[in-house]
Structures are given as structure tokens and as C-alpha cells.
């Protein structure tokens, strides 16, 4: 068993790109479901960072953090999708621009 020669830096770059891709999705897509998917992307980017750092420091705590992130993501997806269903039922749309009840 040996550590791969790929630098941690590369993983971090990948994570950063992934994160920003997700962020872009959140910021420009109007479909609530796609926004949720983008959020999942961002969470995974965070996971990747945790794991890269864990390998760098040989500290398995990072894995646990990733585990918890996955759990939180699962919870978030469940609730979020339930809200999407509820909103859709009430308003017939999942377009985020059409949901503005909190406007001044």
C-alpha cells in the first residue's frame, strides 16, 4: 500500500472548481431541483477537500467529517425535496423566481 504521487494541491484545485461550478448553478439556474443538485455538488466539493487534507495529514478525522457531511446532505435533500413538493402543490411551479412571498 502506498500513497499516490498525486499532489494534494491537485485535489484542492479540483475541489475548488467543483465548488464554484455548484455555486454557479445555484446562482443562475431557476429550477429549484437543479439548484438543489448544485448544492449537492458544493457539498461534495467540501468532502473532497476534507478527504484530501485527511490524506495529507494521515488523520482519519477528516473522513468522519465527510461522513457527517453526507448525513447532513441526506437530511437536507429529504427536507428540501419535501418543500419542493409542497410548493409545487400550492403554486404549480418550482421556479425560484416565482416564489417571493418574503418580499418587502
Amino acid at each position: 500500500m502506498q500513497i499516490s504521487p498525486v499532489d494534494t494541491q491537485n485535489y484542492l484545485l479540483l475541489a475548488a472548481t467543483l465548488f464554484c461550478t455548484g455555486m454557479l448553478g445555484v446562482l443562475v439556474r431557476r429550477n429549484a431541483l437543479v439548484v438543489f443538485m448544485s448544492i449537492e455538488l458544493m457539498l461534495n466539493a467540501a468532502n473532497l477537500t476534507f478527504l484530501a487534507a485527511a490524506r495529507e495529514r494521515l488523520d482519519a478525522t477528516g473522513h468522519l467529517a465527510a461522513l457527517f457531511v453526507i448525513a447532513v446532505a441526506a437530511a437536507e435533500a429529504a427536507i428540501g425535496l419535501a418543500i419542493v413538493i409542497a410548493v409545487f402543490r400550492n403554486r404549480g411551479t418550482v421556479n425560484v423566481e416565482d416564489i417571493r412571498t418574503m418580499k418587502y
Binding site: L48, L51, L67
Partner: peptide, 18 residues
């Protein structure tokens, strides 16, 4: 990629859960 990072457990969970 996780597997390549030696995070086998997480890799498995990723497939299962996500």
C-alpha cells in the same frame, strides 16, 4: 477519486448514499 485518496469507506458510502 475518494478511493484513490485512500478513503475507501467514504467512497463506498458515496456510492450507496448519494
Amino acid at each position: 477519486i475518494y478511493a484513490q485518496l485512500l478513503a475507501h469507506t467514504i467512497a463506498v458510502l458515496q456510492v450507496l448514499v448519494y
